[in-house]
Design a protein around this nucleic acid. Structure first.
Lengths: 201, 201
DNA sequence: ACCTGAACACCGTTCAAGT
DNA sequence: ACCTGAACACCGTTCAAGT
C-alpha cells in the first residue's frame, strides 16, 4: 500500500517526463524532468530503476492511445478504411512527439512495459487485419505485428531527411506501404512473420 | 598542407571509430576510440569538431559503399533485379553495423558530410529507378530518394522487436515494400516526392 | 516509507603546456 | 602545426541523512 505522496509524485513525474521528452527529445536530463515535476532528482530513481525505464513507461503509455483507437475501429463498418485509419493514427503518434521515434529505435525490445503494450497493439492490429482480409483489402500473409512494425517504419523513414517531421511526407510512405499490403499482385514473402514471444528467451 | 602524422592520425581515428561504432553502437566513448587509435583523446577534437561529426563521417563512408554498388548495378542487364539488389545491399549495410541504424535516425540531416553522400546515393538510385521504370518494374511516381528512405525504413522496422538484427526478418519487410513499388494496382500518392535541397535553408 | 541533495564515476569538450 | 592530458561542466545513478 503506497503512501499518498508517492502515488502523487509518480504521476507528476510521468507527466513531466512525457512533456519534456515530447518537447526536447529523449536526451533531456533527469534533473530537468525532476524540476518540472517539482521533486528532487533522487525521487526519480525511487520510482523508476533507470532513465530508460522511465522512457519506456512514457512510451508504452502513448502506445496505449493507439490500442484504444484500434479497439474502437474494430467495430467500424468499413474494415479496409478502419485498418488504414489505424495505421494513420499510429504514424501520427510517432510524428507528433519528438522522442517517440527515438524511443522506438533506442529502447531495448525486452523492456517489460514496452513488450507488454507492444503485445496489446499487435493484438488489436491482428483483429483489424483479419477483418480487412475478409473484406479482400489486404493480402493474407501479413499479421498485426507486421502492421505495427511497418507503420513505425513509415514514421522513421521521414526522419532521415527532415529535422522537424511535423510535415506530411510520412503520408507518402504510408500510402506506398499500404499499396504493398494489398492482395493484388502480391508476391510471396521470403521469411515468415515474426512473433513477439520468440525473442523473450 | 597537413603534416604527415596528422593525416596518419586522422586515418587511424576513422578506422578505430568505424570499428568501435560497429561493435558497440554509437554510444562508445571518445576515450575508447582514441585509445584504440593509439592517440590522446584531445587529438580526436583536433580532427573532428564534435563526436557527432565523427559519427557522420564514418556513416557517410559506409554510404559510399552503397554508392559504389549502385554504380556497378547501373550497367546490369536486368534493370528490375538491379534495383532490388541495390535495395538489398542497402538494408544489409544498415543491418551489418550496430551503429548504422542509430546513426541514420540520430544524425542531424543537415550535417554536411551526411547530406553530401545521401545526395550521391539518391542520384545513383534515381538512375536505377529510371531504368527499372522503363522495364515496367516500378510505378512511375517513385524517385531514387524514395528508395533510399524506404530501404532505411525496412532496416529500422526490424529493430523494434529484435535486439540483434543479424537475422533475416528485414527481408520480409523489404519484400513487402518492393511489392508496394510495383506498377500493378498502384494508387496515386497523396504527397509529392521529397527533395534533399528543400531542407537546406 | 518516502524524499532529498550531496557525492561518485563517468561523459564530451576545451585548452595551456609541450614538441 | 600538431599532440597531449589535466581541467571543466555536465550527466545518470547511489546513498546517507532527514521527515
Amino acid at each position: 500500500m503506497p503512501r499518498a505522496d508517492a502515488v502523487r509524485n509518480r504521476r507528476l513525474l510521468m507527466d513531466a517526463a512525457a512533456a519534456e521528452f515530447a518537447e526536447n527529445g529523449m536526451d533531456v536530463s533527469i534533473t530537468r524532468i525532476a524540476t518540472r515535476a517539482g521533486v528532487g532528482k533522487g525521487t526519480v530513481f525511487r520510482h523508476f530503476d533507470t532513465k530508460e525505464q522511465l522512457l519506456a513507461e512514457v512510451f508504452s503509455d502513448r502506445l496505449e492511445e493507439l490500442v484504444a483507437v484500434g479497439r474502437r475501429l474494430t467495430e467500424a463498418d468499413d474494415a479496409e478504411a478502419a485498418l488504414f485509419e489505424f495505421m494513420t493514427t499510429g504514424v501520427e503518434i510517432h510524428v507528433r512527439d519528438r522522442s517517440f521515434c527515438q524511443a522506438a529505435a533506442a529502447l531495448s525490445p525486452s523492456e517489460a512495459s514496452v513488450r507488454a503494450s507492444r503485445e496489446r497493439v499487435a493484438e488489436v492490429a491482428d483483429t483489424l487485419v483479419d477483418r480487412a482480409r475478409e473484406a479482400g483489402a489486404v493480402r493474407d500473409d501479413v499479421t498485426g505485428l507486421d502492421i505495427v512494425l511497418l507503420l513505425s517504419a513509415a514514421a522513421q523513414a521521414v526522419l532521415s531527411i527532415d529535422e522537424d517531421p511535423q510535415g506530411s511526407l510520412w503520408q507518402r510512405y504510408l500510402a506506398l506501404i499500404i499499396d504493398g499490403l494489398r492482395p493484388q499482385g502480391a508476391h510471396p514473402l521470403p521469411v515468415p512473420a515474426p512473433t513477439l514471444g520468440r525473442f523473450t528467451g
